[in-house]
Simulated scan of single mutants.
Amino acid sequence: MTSEKSGHHAQLTKWKVSANGVFARIFLAFLTTAGIFYINIMPALVSGLKQGLNFTNQQAGFVSSANLYGAAAGALLAVFLVKHINWKKWAYVLLIAILALDFASIFISSSNLMISVRCVHGLVGGLLVGIGFAVISRTQDADKTFGYLLLIQWGLGGLGIMYLPAMVPEFGTSALFVALMSFTFVSLLMLPFLPEYPVAAVDPLALVKTSVRRKPLILNLTAIFLFQAANMGLFAYVIGLGRAQGLTMEFMSPALASASWVALFGSLLVILIGTKYGRAIPLIVAILLTALCSWALIYSEIASVYLLANVIIGITWAFVLPYMFGICSELDKAGQLAALGGFASKMGLASGPMVAAFMLTEDDYQLVIYAAAGVLIVAAAMVYMPARLLDKSK
Rank of each mutant, 00 (worst) to 15 (best):
L269M: 12
N67F: 11
L331P: 01
L389D: 14
Q11N: 11
C119E: 00
I284N: 14
A229V: 03
F183H: 12
G147P: 09
Q366C: 01
L164S: 13
H9M: 11
F171T: 11
L31W: 00
G335V: 01
V22F: 13
L268H: 02
V202W: 15
P169N: 06
A244P: 03
E4Q: 11
A166R: 12
D203H: 10
G326I: 02
V375I: 10
K83F: 04
L376S: 07
S47M: 11
A318H: 07
V375W: 02
A244E: 09
K392T: 10
L269Q: 08
V238H: 07
G7T: 05
A356K: 03
L337D: 06
A166L: 13
F62L: 13
P386K: 08
A334M: 13
I218W: 15
E250N: 05
Y323I: 00
M252E: 05
D391A: 10
L205D: 09
T275M: 08
L150N: 02
V320E: 07
S6K: 11
K346Q: 07
W317E: 05
Y306V: 03
A71M: 00
F27W: 08
A142I: 03
L164Y: 12
L31N: 02
C328P: 07
L272V: 10
Y323P: 03
A142Y: 03
W261E: 02
A259T: 10
K392A: 11
A381V: 13
L256I: 14
W87I: 00
S105W: 13
V208T: 15
D363A: 08
V212W: 09
A236D: 14
A97R: 05
I369D: 10
A166T: 12
S110A: 13
L234I: 09
S267N: 00
F27T: 04
H8Q: 15
V186M: 07
L180K: 05
L234T: 04
A223G: 12
Q51P: 08
F177R: 15
V383Q: 06
M114L: 15
V168S: 15
G314W: 11
W317D: 05
I106Y: 14
P216H: 05
A60L: 11
